[in-house]
């Protein structure tokens, strides 16, 4: 594994049209295998930051490199997980997982092998023929994760993927996500509102302030891996949650 950063932003700014700046002077790096969480109040531009890295929208200023190339470069191996599962409702679960492979022109046999392996990995091996509406919210998000992993990405961008799920499902999916990352060794950017989730998942938390979005603080999370449900009971974990909560409150408007 090379030491060059997977993602590197230097003095990146973003504004839409003549509107106020959404992001200002953002410089950050993410290294191979790292999980970085972006935490901040509503309107701090954390989703926009993710979309910049994905190449879905261009920066107004600054330089942005993904694996040393401009974002959106065909050679970059990036996958995106949206706030909602964003599945194609007319396709079976299996066909949904295969969408990125199909768009890339993979052979049917390869697609089937990959989707079977990934559905097994996210615990949905028996639901391949179901349609998305037959699944629960948590199961749909698992399909979305499996789809994101189908091209074996080296960078995974997750935009509040578990925000709409209940607490128990969210905690279980957090554990599964870490297991998936351990198995796939990709780099992850995780946008969330939840301090507990950010601490549990990350090697590093970036706290953004709002209007405009700026980097407010960087908090390393030195909790040992593998992290499990037990981790949430450890004093170190609870202390970090309290500390990050305080720092987040400092940049959040009252009320």
């Amino acid at each position: 594994m090379s030491l060059c950063p997977v993602v590197e932003l230097q003095a990146v700014a973003k504004r839409f049209g003549d509107g106020p700046p959404v992001l200002e002077d953002i410089s950050l790096r993410a290294h191979p295998g790292e999980m970085v969480s972006l935490l901040g109040p509503s309107g701090c531009g954390k989703s926009t930051l993710l979309r910049l890295i994905a190449g879905l929208t261009p920066p107004t200023a600054g330089s942005l490199r993904v694996e040393g190339r401009p974002p959106g470069d065909p050679a970059a191996s990036v996958a995106f997980v949206f706030q909602e599962a964003t599945l194609l409702p007319w396709l079976s679960v299996r066909a949904n997982v295969e969408v990125p492979l199909r768009l890339g022109g993979a052979a049917a046999a390869d697609r089937a092998a990959t989707s079977s392996r990934l559905l097994e990995l996210v615990g949905l091996g028996h639901r391949g023929d179901a349609y998305p509406r037959q699944l629960s919210g948590g199961q749909r998000m698992r399909v979305s994760l499996a789809r994101a992993l189908s091209l074996s990405p080296r960078l995974l961008l997750l935009d509040e993927p578990f925000g709409a799920l209940d607490e128990m499902t969210r905690e279980r999916l957090n554990e599964e996500l870490l297991a998936l990352q351990g198995a796939g060794s990709w780099t992850g950017f995780f946008v969330t509102h939840s301090v507990a989730e950010a601490v549990f998942l990350s090697h590093r938390i970036l706290i953004l302030s709002a209007h405009p979005g700026r980097l407010h603080a960087e908090v390393p999370v030195p909790l040992p891996h593998p992290r499990t449900a037990e981790t949430r009971l450890q004093p170190d974990y609870l202390r970090l949650v309290a500390q990050v909560s305080r720092q987040l409150r400092a940049v959040s408007p009252a009320g």
């Binding site: 994905a54 190449g55 879905l56 065909p74 990036v78 996958a79 995106f80 949206f82 909602e84 964003t86 194609l88 007319w90 969408v99 990125p100 199909r102 768009l103 890339g104 091209l151």
Partner: peptide, 24 residues
């Protein structure tokens, strides 16, 4: 979001039309 998903995977115009827009 689905349109962006297709952009992200660099779907061609005809792929976006036949695999996404028409079924939708």
């Amino acid at each position: 979001n689905l349109v962006e998903l297709f952009q992200l995977y660099r779907a061609r115009r005809w792929q976006q039309l036949f695999l996404l827009r028409i079924p939708a």
